[in-house]
Design a protein around this nucleic acid. Structure first.
Lengths: 226, 226
DNA sequence: TTAAAACGTTACATGTTTGTTATTTTTAAT
DNA sequence: ATTAAAAATAACAAACATGTAACGTTTTAA
């Protein structure tokens, strides 16, 4: 049963709240609003799948509120988008270092906001807490960082392991090279596309009989055959 | 979650059922229970968002019941948590290979169980119906970037796939060549109108029986017949 | 400090996709 | 039915994406 995602908008301007509520509901989300961090704190925050928070508000600013969310065990993985009129780089870095997932400047386009929301909600989907990923006799132990085929260990490098993990956690799904970079490489590392191809091929060789379960979708990227 | 998720607990021990029902309802879920797989089969299974199933029960064991759920089209994406006293690795592998999503050993902590439930519900919740576009036996899987007819894969090139996606997402609507260019081709690429005709025709051929669902509106463009 | 492993990059071969042109067929209006 | 415009199709050429081997650089471990 596919349910709508719930979003909480925290902004002291009623207009912004209303505009966001209207538009995001049109985009298929359930939206609640709060006029201050203090008001939001009184709500059942675990009801929400994503927070959109204004930086400048009354007593508690948006970053402080974001920190509060991040330090709550049950909420620590819920994506947060900070929106602000400020655009100094300091703010941005500060926001990210406190665990904010995205950052959008006022005035912003609703389209862009929705795109970012989609992306963040999708990203949380990738995180799975399964310790063992298996496909036939191929086994991956996330905790041990080890992989085996027919019970025999297959030594994978970190990159190879992370790619395989990503693929097995989302079997069948095709990842673009950009997506693979996002998930497997460190955020800011800049490597060229060929790098992924080469790593994919190294992985394929090591996976022996399962090598060609890694499929190439021309023009799109790579994935693991269901 | 604004809307409560429905959970079905299937366990032959009444005590376990009651404890789980009590605790999970406290955690904000609607919980029903059944004392056997057979009893559960008589219930309206599509009402549930998640199943918690004991391995050892009367005639039909938990894994068999899980398999039944997985092989039902309407239920195949509903998360299943198997709980058991057994902990041999064989059981575990067996469970995963049959599509069980998570596995928890008795005695288990309610906190841990709730954490796993949350994670599983979050994961499936965003698998929005947009991922699959269908028309009769024609299926398009946006994530897999794949298309099938009568269950058999039809290999489409990127352009063909994107055109089909556009059409199925807007069934009945006629797109001018310019619109198709805007949506399917990169922003600034300059190609002539005939190019679209050619790609439309390549797509038509590959879509076999559905080929002439792609209609030509003379003087306007193309679309997908409702 | 050295050696090995991991990782990134380059260059080229190969196969696929895509665009264009030219020609035939279909359509709609007279 | 005739005709002109629009679209379908086939064939070819150009562009593009990918696989792979070889080499260079960085990191890790001894």
């Amino acid at each position: 049963m596919a349910q709508k995602s719930n979003i909480l908008v925290v902004d002291d301007e009623d207009t912004i709240c209303e505009v966001l509520k209207l538009n995001l509901e049109l985009a298929g989300y359930n939206v609640d609003t709060a006029n201050s961090a203090e008001a939001a704190m009184k709500m059942q925050l675990s009801d929400y799948d994503l927070f959109i928070i204004d930086v400048m508000m009354g007593e508690m600013n948006g970053f402080d509120f974001a920190s509060k969310i991040r330090s709550t065990e049950a909420l620590k993985d819920v994506p947060i988008i900070i929106c602000t009129a400020k655009d100094s780089e300091d703010d941005l870095i500060d926001g990210f270092s406190r665990g904010v997932d995205d950052y959008i400047k006022k005035p912003f386009s609703i389209r862009e906001l929705i795109a970012r929301i989609k992306s963040l909600l999708r990203r949380t989907k990738f995180e799975s807490n399964e310790v063992f990923l298996t496909y036939q006799t191929l086994m991956v132990d996330i905790e041990k960082k080890s992989c085996s085929i027919d019970g025999e260990e297959v030594l994978l490098t970190k990159k190879e392991f992370e790619i395989l993990k990503l693929f097995l956690q989302n079997r069948g799904r095709i990842f673009s090279r950009e997506e693979i970079l996002d998930k497997v490489w460190e955020n800011d590392v800049l490597v060229i596309d060929r790098t992924i191809d080469v790593n994919i091929n190294r992985l394929r060789k090591k996976l022996k009989q399962y090598g060609n379960n890694i499929i190439t979708k021309l023009g799109y990227g790579y994935g693991f055959k269901d």
